[in-house]
Every structure is written in C-alpha cells, then in structure tokens.
Design a protein around this nucleic acid. Sequence first.
DNA 1: ATGAAAGCGCTAACAG
DNA 2: CTGTTAGCGCTTTCAT
Lengths: 294, 294
Amino acid sequence: MPDQLARALRTKRTNTIGLVIPDISNPFFSTIARNIEIQARKIGTAIILSDSQEETQLEIESLRLLQSRKVDGLIVCPVGEECEHLKSIKISGLPLVIIDRVFPDLECAYVVSDNHKGALEAVSHFFEMNHRSIGLIQGKVNTSVNIDRIKGYRDAHQKFGVALDESLIVGDSFGKRNGYIATKILLSKAQRPTAIFATSNLISLGAMTAIQEEGLRIPEDISLISFDDQPYSEYLATPMTTVSQQTAEAGEIAFRLLQTQIKGENQLSPEGIVLPTELVFRNSVKKMDAVNAI
Amino acid sequence: MPDQLARALRTKRTNTIGLVIPDISNPFFSTIARNIEIQARKIGTAIILSDSQEETQLEIESLRLLQSRKVDGLIVCPVGEECEHLKSIKISGLPLVIIDRVFPDLECAYVVSDNHKGALEAVSHFFEMNHRSIGLIQGKVNTSVNIDRIKGYRDAHQKFGVALDESLIVGDSFGKRNGYIATKILLSKAQRPTAIFATSNLISLGAMTAIQEEGLRIPEDISLISFDDQPYSEYLATPMTTVSQQTAEAGEIAFRLLQTQIKGENQLSPEGIVLPTELVFRNSVKKMDAVNAI
DNA sequence: ATGAAAGCGCTAACAG
DNA sequence: CTGTTAGCGCTTTCAT
C-alpha cells in the first residue's frame, strides 16, 4: 500500500478534491454530496468535506485549508453573494466548479437549477388556480438563487397581468426559522394572501409551524408551494406541491465539469449548466372561485 | 501557506480523519457527519468523506483508501455484521471509533443509541394503549442495532405477558423499499396486527406508502411508531410518534473519543458510549379498547 | 541564538 | 530494460 502522501508530494497530484457545503445535514446538499462521492470513488478520488455552516467567513477558511492541503480541485456551494474569495481561487488556476449559485462577474463553471422557470411555473400555477394574492418567502437576499426566484415570481405576475404587492415579499434566509417568522408576518396582514410560495424546503417547514399555530389548514385556508421536493413531501398532512430540483444530477455533473478542468481539457469559456426543474402537483394548492379573479 | 502534504510526510501526522458512512443522503448519517465536521474544524482537522453505499465491499475499499492516505484516525458507521476488516485496522494501531454498531468480539471505542431501551419503550407504549398484535419491521439482520431492537421488542412482550408471534417479525433492511414490502406482508395477514413498529426512518416512509395503498389510515386502522425522529415527523399526515436518537451528540462524542486516541491518551479499555433515546409522543398510536387486552 | 543539512516515501529522470 | 539517484516542501536535528 503505497503512501499517497509521498506520491502526491512528488507528482503534484493528490487525487483529492475539496467540497464546501453550507449545511451537510440539509438533504438538498447531502444528496449533492452523495452523488459527487459516488463519481469520485470510481476513479479513486477522495473528497475532503467542509461544512461552512452558512457563514462566508467559515467558507473562506475552508477554502484556505483545502488549498493548503493541495486539493486538485474544488466544488463549492457558496453561502453568500460575495465571490472575491472564489475569484482569487480562479485566478490561482485551481480548478473550480460552483453549485447552486451564479456570479455574473466570475468566470467559472457552474451547475444551477433553472430557478427562474421553477418559480415562474409555481406562481403561474397559483394564478391558474385563481389566486391573486401570493406571498413570497425569500431566502438569502442578493444571492443568484433568490434573485432568479423572485424574478420568476415577478414575471408570473406580469404574465397574468396582476399588480404586484411588494409587501408580500418577506424573509431573508433559506432556514426554517425564517420560514416561521415570515409566515407569521404574512398571515397577520390585514389583507392576508391566499397562497404562499416558500423558496426552500426548510422555509416550508417553518411555514407549516406558523400555519398550524394560527389554526389554519392547507390548502383550505392557505395554499402552499415549496421549492425542493423531498422524500417526505407526499406524506405531509397535506401532500405538498413542490418544485423539484435535480440534485443528484447536479452533483454528478459538477464532478464531471471539475474532472475536465483537472485533466486540463479546459475549454476557453467555462461551462455553465442549467438544470430544469419540475413542478410536482400534489394537494397543497386550493382552486379558488373564479370570482376572486380580476 | 505551508504545504500540509510535505508537513504531513515529515511529521507523520496529516490532521485528517476518515469518515465512512453508508449513505450520506440519509439525514440520520448526515447529522452525525455534520457534527463531526463542526468539531473537526475547530482544531484544523480535515475530514475525508467516504460513502460506502450500504455495501461492505465498498466499505472495505474506503478503509484501504483512507489508510493509504495516512489519516490520523477513522470514524466509521459500519454497514454490516462483519468486522474482520475493522479488527485488522484496530490491530494496526490506527485510532478507530465506531458509530451505530457494536461488535462483541472487537475491542474498539463506539457510540450507539440505547436501542434496546428505545424499542422496549416504544413497544411498551403500544401495549399500554392496549395493542396486542404488533408487527416489527426489522432492519439489516444480525447487526447489533437490529438485534438490540428486536430484543427490546421481545422484552416488552415478556414484560406485558403477551405471547410473541414470530411471524410478526418481518423485513431485512433499513431502507424504504423494505419498509414498503414488509408492511404489505403484515397488512395482508389473516390476523392483521393493529400496530407496526418501524425500526428506521426510511422503513416508516415505505410503510406509509403501503398503508396508503391499502386504503388504511393512521392511527384509526393501524398504529405506527418509527425509530429516528425527523424534522418533518410532526408535519406528517398523522404526526408520528417516534424514538428520537441523539445523532448530533453521537457525532460530537465520536470525534472526541477519536481525539483522545489520536493524542495517545489511550486508556487500556476502549470506551463504549451508550446514548439514551427518547419516545416522542405524537398522534400515530391509537388507544384501543381495553377489551382487546387479554 | 541562527543556519545548514538530513530525510520522510515516493516518482521521474537518467545512467549503465 | 533495469537500477540508481535527485528532489518534492517541510521539520527536526545538529553544528556553529
């Protein structure tokens, strides 16, 4: 059993990649991680896992640590909107693939869901079911994911010709707590929305708590669609209509993109892959009377 | 930024540990992984993650790979009942901690839940609610986890003085598919049990599909308790009574145990830590008429 | 105190 | 084609 360390020192190749993820206990990310691992193991590549705990500072530290460990490449799911630290990695020439985020001024390979279309379809579905007042619980502000989903929300309004009430856009994080708080706010409005679009699985968990607390039922009293399909989505008190993302594929593709970079088949323009989403219809959206429509 | 590789080669210390897990996308394991990572990052230790995909052969390969990478220690959640490969690691002197499994003839530090007590309490609760025919869907046979949970199931029967019907013990894996199949079998019995004890979160997911397919309701037609509490457990169609395990603590403790071994504070008898479980009462257990009792 | 040198285990280059 | 050697970047030892 040869010493991979000594070999790596000599060959300048560790057969190791770094994976930086905001929260490995979130099934969205752990599914990505799993599929990266499955690909990596096939070619004897090891993965150093780093959990940035949703903090940019820890993400930066992770990246430094991984570089000092001489990984052959990096796959990162960035926490925030900053990308200076990623830019410097790109400049250093270290292969890099980003998942779940797009930075316009960073030339880097990435894999993302079609967040705009996913949100557009979800909100359009609400409109088709004659909802006219739809709350949006957003995630981390200024992230590409959030921006695209909000744009989908806006474009759906435009498509159906309904004026957008800015006060219906609430929240500031993809976590459960934010889902709870934002829902509380939405439900307490004088003009309570008839539907809520939760932009993450964790947000919808928090939303359900708030809805329950207010003694409301889904979908009789309030309709709900959530981003991220989950194994349990169909078993919920009200089976939930969701926007499904191809997380397994995202992981696999990210690994492949990274491999081409590592092998030096580095085309001039880094690839950006956009994965389709799918609206999974279940029972959390009520069909309103058409009279509610304009 | 010093080259950790060269340093490691020289000092014989990589500040890296290996983590081998059967399925990182299972929240039970990803929560463990996360808490190991959080501890590790505090002291600049990196984690190489390996997903054994529930296969002993891949687990063995992972272990070999990690050894050749000269990790300082290993935390593994073993897949099966074999432990020869783990024994040889222990003999080699490499620090090792096992999570979620106990091997009687392997002297090695470990962290497990009190599976016996967890199962005993769950099944006792069924009895207290006047159930007398309780199906058990077991996981992987011959694993310590499974053995202990079955023992809890048996002991509960003894405690309440009800004869045990061996045909009520079905299944052979901790996965969802097994949950589905085993439930189908239980529900098709001439003498259908009034309650089912699912020994994992995935099993209960499969069980719910089968119960739904049979047109049955929880708990009116069939009661259910599942091992593993989950963030979504309370939001299910019927909020589920579960046996909660301290997964976060398990990860943290495992890392600490490993650290003491790495630092050479290696006491003669390796520590075995047993973590308590907690029965979380929700609505998936129906109180039967006492007339059903003996 | 500060600096030079040896060597960790491997591979790649080179010589025989 | 096979065997020897230099050196990857660091730490540790030893000499100054």
